[in-house]
Nucleic acid binder design. Structure first.
Length: 539
RNA sequence: GGCCCCAUCGUCUAGGCAGGUCUAGGACACCGGGUUUUCAACCCGGCAACAGGGGUUCGAAUCCCCUUGGGGCUACCA
């Protein structure tokens, strides 16, 4: 039975790279009828934040990635937080110590730094002739020195990683230096915890980023020393950002900083307040000295109206992408079904997924293509599913449209066929959810539409024609406009646009008949009147 | 610096392991045209790639080597 896992370290939101790793592991488990485990690698006390785990789980659920074992669902190998598995790791550390395969060391960070500086690049920890005893360790502890444990990596043999994607990768003897397996705070290091947990949890296939390929010989050595199995390894290509380099969460703060610097003078106090930071924090961020957490970054961007590149899964949700899109797109980054299918649903993805078809080379995250996938998925998704996604999207930002009933939202969704994101739909139908006297008239629209080609005159004529209507249909409205266009000998655009601007304040809305239909006669008349009265001055 | 991985249109990729059927296929983007009542969507057409150099072979995008380029790792982070 195939067992895969995703093991995020909860240092922030789940980003797309992590989501892709999770997805591939999940797809493979689902494809083979195996099990998928979620394990939280929270052994770094300095970096983990308490809310991050919940956010990561939430992001995975949004994507539709479920786990058979892990936080919230439990399982036979609990606990699934590494921070709670201390005793287990301690047992194996003890075993290695007793077998003389690992040893204590007492260096302070400063001493280590000095050694590294002296040795230059290619530093390898010098293994002592005699390993310190338990008594030595106790004494060191009593003296307040840090006590860590290093694994004595066999130096006389080569290690061969047998990788599904890359074939055999050889590492010469002496290539892997002795590395720390237990930190002085008592926590295991990543290298140690993965090896132990993968063994204990019965993981058969390790699918992870290529950046881990160089760590694998160390894991192999550890497995051998502990008498563990070696799982099947698949080191996937990495997703890179358009300007080269790994797609990283650091991109958002970077873009924000550049945007602010480009704006010239900004109100630091206001910014600090928006992000609930101190002015010093903001200054320090702008100077490139520090980086606040993601919610603070998001808050500042929102306050300034700067749009940041989406990096985290939640960013794509907020930008109006569907989980179906993300899953489809991410799956195609470094994998393909071997035929010419591209837009696929999850079931198709699962049915077609094979490790053998993973690509070796890195790929660029192309937001343009992502958007085109989203357009396709919006089109092909059943109405009720789309409605659910749209409600979730509206709720995320407490949009007034949340108040609308299902029938209204369904109608909106229908009218917005062809939209590329949920955000576009929201924008296109926002006019429905503002009060008639709150419509904001965009300068550009007023200038180009109402004040050209006798836009106001057209509007007045429409008002006159609408006066004694008692009911309205999209068709009737369009017939009226068509008639007026004919009378004036102009295109429909010259007639429809002034009305659209009067009703929406801008030039974007569903087909004009439907726009009036959604609004109803009274609100339409009120808005026409207001436009006629308020937009006589050229802005 | 050392070690490791990778290399087909601008981008994601098919083809490569079993060399000829590849005058290299698809998708996104882009360009041109059409449809149109705005934004989208839609329809038609077009541009565009085997990184370079050596081999092996009757024959190489496909196999080997070198160069170049890109990426990664080199922590008491994961």
């Amino acid at each position: 039975m195939v067992v895969t896992r995703f093991a995020p370290s909860p240092t922030g939101y789940l980003h797309v790279g992590g989501a892709r790793t999770a997805l591939f592991n999940w797809l493979y488990a689902r494809r083979t009828g195996g099990r998928f485990i979620l394990r939280v690698e929270d052994t770094d006390q300095k970096r983990n934040t308490p809310t991050a785990t919940q956010q990561v789980l939430r992001d995975l659920r949004w994507l539709g990635i479920d786990w058979d074992e892990g936080p919230d669902v439990g399982g036979p190998h609990k606990p699934y937080h590494q921070s709670q598995r201390g005793e287990i790791y301690a047992r194996y550390v003890k075993q290695l110590l007793e077998q003389g395969k690992a040893y204590y060391c007492f260096d302070t960070p400063e001493e280590l730094e000095a050694l590294r500086a002296k040795a230059g690049p290619g530093f390898a920890y010098a293994r002592p002739e005699q390993f310190p005893t338990d008594e030595d360790a106790a004494r060191a502890r009593a003296e307040g020195r840090p006590v860590a444990v290093r694994f004595a990596v066999p130096q006389d043999r080569e290690f061969i990683v047998d990788d599904v994607i890359r074939g055999q990768v050889r590492f010469r003897p002496g290539e892997v230096g002795d590395f720390v397996i237990q930190k002085s705070d008592g926590f295991p290091t990543y290298h140690f915890a993965v090896v132990v947990d993968d063994e204990l949890m019965g993981v058969t296939h390790v699918i992870r980023g290529q950046e881990h390929l160089m760590n694998t010989p160390a894991h192999l050595a550890l497995q051998e020393a502990l008498g563990f199995r070696t799982p099947v390894y698949a080191h996937m290509s990495v997703t890179v950002s358009p300007d080269g380099g790994k797609l990283s969460k650091r991109e958002r703060p970077k873009v924000l900083r550049q945007a602010i610097q480009a704006m010239g003078d900004v109100d630091v106090e206001a910014l600090a307040q928006a992000a609930s930071l101190s002015a010093e924090d903001v200054e320090s961020f702008l100077a490139g000295k520090s980086v606040p957490d993601m919610p603070a970054i998001d808050a500042m961007a929102a306050a300034l109206g700067v749009s940041l590149p989406e990096i985290n899964v939640v960013d794509f949700f907020r930008s109006g992408y569907l989980p179906e899109t993300m899953v489809n797109f991410l799956a195609l980054l470094g994998w393909n079904p071997g035929d010419e299918r591209e837009v696929m649903d999850v079931q198709e993805l699962i049915a077609a997924f094979e490790l053998e078809r993973l690509t070796k080379s890195n790929s660029l995250f192309d937001r343009k293509k992502l958007m085109s996938f989203n357009t396709e998925h919006i089109k092909r998704l059943p109405a009720d599913r789309l409605l659910r996604h749209y409600r979730a999207f509206l709720q995320e930002t407490a949009n007034p449209a949340t108040q609308a009933d299902d029938a209204t939202l369904m109608r909106i969704l229908e009218l917005c066929r062809g939209a590329r994101t949920l955000a576009e739909i929201e924008q296109k139908c926002r006019f429905l959810f503002v009060e008639d006297d709150q419509v904001v008239y965009e300068d550009k629209a007023v200038r180009n539409v109402l004040h050209k080609h006798d836009g106001l005159g057209v509007l007045a004529e429409i008002e006159k024609n609408l006066k004694d209507w008692t009911a309205v249909t999209a068709e009737a409205v369009e017939n009226l406009l068509r008639r007026l266009a004919e009378q004036r000998g102009v295109g429909l655009g010259k007639i429809a646009q002034p009305l659209r601007v009067a009703l929406c304040g801008n030039t974007i809305s569903p087909p004009i008949g439907d726009t009036v239909g959604l609004l109803g006669l009274d609100r339409t008349r009120r808005r026409i009147r207001r436009a006629l009265e308020g937009c006589t001055q050229n802005p």
